[in-house]
Design a protein around this nucleic acid. Structure first.
Length: 672
DNA sequence: AAGCTCTGCTTTTTT
DNA sequence: AGCAGAGCTT
């Protein structure tokens, strides 16, 4: 508490009912929310009566870690946890199972959800509907409607006709037509989930919000349980999450922190403008602001401020550094992504000579995929790193294979798991698997299913198929053993499937079995693991200590984090904003600008932006003029950065003060 | 007819 | 790295 400034302290010790803290990047948002929680705990509030919510697992964990460090040892630190909205809803469902029959359903992750859509659409998948609109699109429309509480028509309009005029009669007509195709498919998907006992990510929030809203007595009971609800990154709250929070405004105390300039989840239905109406819509609420930046040097903020100021939107943000001046951000020109990966890793190694540690460096990319070349360079140069936001262990094929067997044991109606599991065995492909499933899926017990399978004459169906399931099923309340058993039984076929890769993939199961020991049942393990895959894809090199590692992260996963040196990859035209984003229109472009802003404001001392010289003069799928005109670094004043070309510091372009692409005098190329 | 294997294509962002 | 499709095998 002692190291807080006046505004932070005022927020942390707030005595009113609800509070929204509007805080710019680096002004101590996390610090304040941690201080708030610590203050409540030290004044006698029980840890389990405080819900600390965030949007990513990473930042939820970060807050919990910092809170554990800041409270005195007299507390049971294990009961201090940070939650995502989803894991919180899961917790609520489990604490009140009688009100939430969905608590024992099988969670569908993103891939499963798409499979479920495909299956729900079903046999007549040659319908015009499925050809005309992809299942991914339908899933996106459905999810958008659920998350923003809007009608199907509005969701269709938003996803399919983003850039169109909403009052155009022709567009209205097309939306109506699309609706005729889409509505029945969504209906089938919902029915399908019910039948198979599936719950998707959106359902977790939706179910809890629905029950709390409709049932006054449950609401009383549940909201009395959470005296304080602390929400980080409030600007990313979508209407569904907002509806959930509103159920808590009668009895609980809300403490929310956020920054409209860092809103980067519009694709999930968040609207940063809702934060502006917080005080007006939540009774008994107050507003406080944090404005002084403690993280970065002024030069880093100057560049960040400048990027935001180029926006037609008025964010009214101008961060001032408490730390004063430091070094200028570097704009580093490289040839391509190979040179980029090489340069980034060289710079990291060089920083070690200045006494920095690996963990002082963070590498940020727009997508998980964009980090792969740097990841490769780290492996080559034996730089220890952790990758955030990439594919987690549970999404990797070999884990899904083994987990499929466990899922069947836990939920015999889990068709998606059946399909995957059956097809692992020799001579069983999509057709045979479907045939087998159609024979057993209507049976009522696991035993009946096994019996039927053993009597079945379908070829390819060996006794191993059923024996494995039976053995796994025996450990339904011991997920670690269940997994061990599944791996043993399926070892041969997995070895064959993954050939030489198997030797290192198999190591993942030891990690997972250890994690699974913390769960009391297969269902619980799967749910917890889908919501929080603890063993993210990490690689360690050299040292035993995992603590000192470079962080490779997507910008989204890096929100709320900071590092002494930040390397931002690929700050090219057609990438900030990207060609795809430009097609989606102004809102998407603005979101991407905020994305870049979030990336820049992670840096404490050094900020390196990497840019391909090649990108400055190549054609793209998008109209060239548009791509270059929208580029976020257009017109960048030379005094804001130091330009590095071929490792050498350069004067910015002589005779001009901006980086307008026309200044790069390269010949145009006409491929026609 | 169904399964298997090879090749080429495409990759936003999170729960 | 996964997926779809082509072409080959059982």
């Amino acid at each position: 508490m002692s190291d807080l400034n006046e505004s932070q302290k005022r927020a942390a010790t707030f005595e009113g009912k609800h509070l929204l803290v509007l805080a710019g990047a680096g002004t101590g948002k996390t610090k304040t929310i941690v201080a708030r929680a610590a203050y409540l705990l030290e004044n006698g509030m029980e840890p389990n009566k405080i819900a600390i919510l965030s949007f990513t697992r990473k930042s939820a964990r970060e807050i919990a870690e910092r809170l554990k460090q800041s409270v005195t040892s007299s507390f049971n630190k294990n009961s201090i946890t940070g939650k995502t909205f989803h894991s919180w809803c899961n917790e609520i469902m489990h604490q009140y199972p009688e009100h939430f029959p969905h608590h024992s359903f099988t969670p569908l992750d993103e891939d499963d959800r798409l499979s479920a859509f495909a299956l729900a659409i079903g046999r007549n998948s040659k319908d015009r509907a499925t050809e005309k609109i992809k299942k991914e699109t339908i899933a996106a429309i459905y999810s958008y409607a659920v998350n923003t509480l809007c009608s199907l028509s509005e969701a269709i309009l938003h996803i399919l006709y983003t850039t169109s005029d909403k009052n155009d009669e022709q567009i209205k007509k097309r939306v109506e037509d699309d609706k005729q195709l889409i509505a029945p498919i969504i209906k089938k998907y919902i029915e399908y989930k019910k039948e198979r006992r599936y719950i998707d990510y959106d359902d977790m929030l939706n179910v809890v919000a629905m029950v709390l809203e409709r049932n006054e007595s449950v609401r009383k009971e549940v909201t009395a349980r959470y005296v304080h609800v602390l929400v980080d990154e409030m600007q990313d709250t979508n209407p569904l999450q907002y509806k959930l929070l509103k159920c808590f405004t009668e009895r609980s105390h809300l403490f929310c922190v956020g920054d409209d300039a860092q809103s980067i989840y519009a694709f999930r239905g968040a609207d940063f403008k809702t934060i502006h109406s917080f005080v007006a819509t939540v009774p008994n609420s107050d507003l406080q602001k944090l404005e002084l930046n403690y993280r970065s040097t002024q030069e880093i903020l100057d560049l960040s401020n400048w990027v935001l100021q180029q926006s037609p939107l008025d964010y009214n943000k101008n961060l001032t550094a408490d730390r004063g001046v430091g070094g200028k951000p570097k704009l580093i020109h490289i040839e391509d992504d190979w040179e980029e990966a090489d340069t980034v890793t060289e710079n990291i190694l060089n920083s070690l000579n200045d006494g920095d540690t690996y963990s002082d460096s963070m590498v940020l990319g727009r997508s998980g995929w964009s980090l792969s070349k740097v990841e490769g360079a780290c492996l080559k140069k034996k730089i220890p790193y952790i990758k955030l936001g990439g594919t987690s262990l549970i999404q990797s094929a070999h884990v899904r294979d083994v987990v499929a067997a466990m899922r069947i044991a836990a939920n015999i109606y889990d068709e998606i798991a059946w399909i995957r599991y059956l097809q692992l065995w020799q001579h069983i492909g999509t057709v045979t698997a479907a045939k087998i499933i159609s024979e057993i899926i209507t049976l009522e017990t696991f035993e009946q299913m096994m019996e039927k399978l053993q009597l079945s004459t379908i070829k390819g169906l060996s006794s191993e198929v059923t024996d494995t399931l039976k053995e796994v099923r025996a450990f339904i309340n011991n997920p670690s053993k269940a997994m061990e058993n599944a791996v043993t039984n399926m070892k041969e076929l997995l070895e064959k499937k993954y050939s030489e890769e198997w030797s290192y993939r198999v190591a993942d199961f030891e990690v997972l079995q250890e994690v699974a020991k913390g769960s009391g049942s297969i269902t619980e393990f799967i749910m917890e693991y889908v919501l929080d895959p603890k063993a993210e894809t990490t690689a360690k090199y050299g040292k035993e200590t995992e603590d000192d590692v470079v962080t490779l992260s997507t910008i989204h996963s890096a929100k709320g984090l900071e590092a002494k040196t930040v390397h931002v990859l690929n700050v090219n035209p057609y990438n900030y904003p990207s060609a795809r984003t430009i097609k989606q229109g102004t809102d998407a472009v603005e979101e991407e600008r905020r994305c870049l802003y979030v990336a820049l404001t992670r840096a404490k001392d050094h900020l390196h932006l990497y840019r391909f010289t090649r990108s400055l003069h190549t054609q793209s799928a998008v109209n060239k003029e548009e791509g270059t005109n929208l580029y976020f670094l257009n017109g960048l004043p030379q005094e804001l950065v130091t330009l590095i070309v071929k490792g050498n510091e350069q004067e910015y372009y002589t005779g001009t003060t901006d980086t307008n692409l026309e200044d790069f005098d390269f010949p145009d190329f006409d491929f026609d």
